[in-house]
């Protein structure tokens, strides 16, 4: 595709380079757009929820109801239903996780911001490390370090020779695959989504500059880009949900006694 288009007028298709935004102030790496967006998300989320929860009324206002709905979703549908009776300890973490990821994802389609922060892999890495540390810490505290390792490496109720296969797989699952898939799933979805939008919007824009035949095609590219924006919104919400749900599941597994 890039060859086809660049052959005509030198169109540069969007690439991974479009995610490497330069610092706003000089060479300071702390002044890039993703970093500003992350701080913005902290401000937006805290302001919204503090305003919504400040009065804690029995009969909620519209604002409190909106905030409560999101909180209750994480608290009841994610934490309580997945983790069980000890869920309340993990609600603050899961709530922060969900709102933080959701806000940063939605930045991808908010006009003027239009950059999903989670398409910068560092942020999903950080979140995955948090989850990784928490669920291992909970498991070790709940079961003790040796029983926990034993449970991972020698799953009960399995014929001994199978351990040759199973033990490496289980170890890899708990210590490599879980954090890696958690972060890469989020990152890749946001990355690919943003790339798709770039292709259709920039492509449509480029077609508009072409000959009359190409100009006629251009609206279709834009229309598709708009359609994809709605699709992206769905993916952004879904990914925030999945990340939080998996974290809750890992914590639930850490608290669960031997099967």
């Amino acid at each position: 595709m890039s060859l086809l288009l660049s052959g005509e007028e030198g169109f540069t298709p969007p690439s991974t380079a479009d995610f490497n935004l330069p610092p706003v102030f000089g060479d300071n790496p702390y002044t890039t757009k993703p970093i500003f967006l992350v701080f913005l998300s902290v401000i937006v989320v805290s302001t919204f929820f503090i305003a919504a929860s400040r009065k804690a009324l029995v009969m909620p206002t519209k604002l409190q109801f909106a905030g409560e709905s999101i909180y209750a979703f994480v608290r009841n549908d994610l934490a309580r239903d997945v983790i069980g009776h000890e869920f309340m300890r993990f609600v603050p973490y899961l709530f922060t996780l969900f709102t933080f990821i959701l806000t940063n994802n939605i930045f991808g389609i908010v006009p003027l911001l239009q950059f999903p922060t989670m398409s910068r892999v560092s942020f999903p890495y950080v979140l995955a490390i948090f989850t990784f540390v928490i669920f291992h810490y909970v498991a070790i505290k709940h079961k003790g370090i040796l029983p926990y390792l034993k449970e991972i490496m020698f799953m009960p109720g399995v014929p001994k020779p199978v351990y040759i296969l199973l033990t490496p797989i289980e170890l890899a699952t708990y210590f490599v695959v879980r954090p890696l898939t958690l972060s890469l799933r989020l990152f890749a979805n946001m990355f690919a989504g943003h790339l798709l939008l770039l292709v259709f919007i920039l492509g449509g824009d480029h077609l508009l500059k072409g000959v009359i035949g190409l100009k006629l095609v251009s609206p279709f590219a834009f229309a598709f880009g708009i359609g994809l924006t709605f699709f992206e919104f769905m993916v952004q919400c879904l990914q925030a949900y999945i990340f939080t749900l998996l974290t809750a599941l890992y914590i639930a597994g850490a608290l669960a006694d031997e099967h």
Partner: peptide
């Protein structure tokens, strides 16, 4: 830079939500 900022920003948000928002809700 992003790792550090991500860590700080997320921790900050966590502390705010845990101390101000969760108890009120």
């Amino acid at each position: 830079a992003e790792l550090i900022v991500g860590f700080i920003a997320f921790s900050l948000l966590f502390l705010v939500l845990r101390s101000k928002v969760v108890p009120m809700f």
